[in-house]
Simulated scan of single mutants.
Amino acid sequence: MKFGPRKPSLKKSLKARTTGKAKRAARKALIPGYGEKGTGWIKDPKKAAYNKIYRKTTFSLWDLFK
């Protein structure tokens, strides 16, 4: 498990910012429960637990500037 700062990725950051609102709306219309909080625990509890711990033990370098 990682502890401390995460390595920033410009490519992933840009991809997250440019994913379209229409694309998310289409998925929400087709997939019931898409984008709702807590559905990860139902789909894959092991991964959801890992992600919860990861988000609590690491931080972004951009958080230091806030």
Rank of each mutant, 00 (worst) to 15 (best):
M1K: 07
M1V: 09
K2M: 06
K2H: 10
F3L: 13
F3K: 08
F3R: 05
F3V: 15
P5D: 04
P5S: 12
P5I: 04
K7M: 03
S9W: 04
L10G: 14
L10N: 14
K11A: 15
K11R: 15
K11L: 14
K11H: 11
S13L: 14
L14Y: 06
L14F: 10
L14N: 07
A16I: 04
R17K: 15
R17P: 01
T18Y: 06
T19M: 07
T19F: 14
T19E: 15
G20L: 09
G20D: 15
G20F: 02
K21M: 08
A22E: 04
R24S: 11
R24L: 14
A25W: 00
A26Y: 00
A26D: 03
A26V: 00
K28N: 01
A29M: 02
A29L: 07
I31C: 02
I31P: 00
I31H: 07
P32S: 13
G33E: 05
G33L: 07
G33H: 05
Y34N: 01
Y34F: 13
G35I: 08
K37R: 11
K37Q: 08
G38A: 07
T39N: 06
T39S: 01
T39H: 04
T39L: 05
G40P: 03
G40F: 04
W41I: 01
W41K: 12
W41H: 05
I42T: 15
I42S: 10
K43I: 15
D44H: 12
D44L: 09
D44R: 09
D44C: 11
P45Q: 02
K46T: 12
K46R: 15
K47Y: 08
K47T: 11
A49D: 02
A49I: 10
Y50G: 02
K52M: 11
I53D: 08
I53G: 06
I53M: 08
Y54R: 10
R55N: 15
R55C: 09
T57M: 10
T57S: 09
F59M: 06
S60F: 06
L61M: 08
L61Q: 10
W62N: 06
W62Y: 13
W62K: 13
D63Q: 09
L64A: 14
F65Y: 09
F65I: 11
K66M: 05
K66P: 01
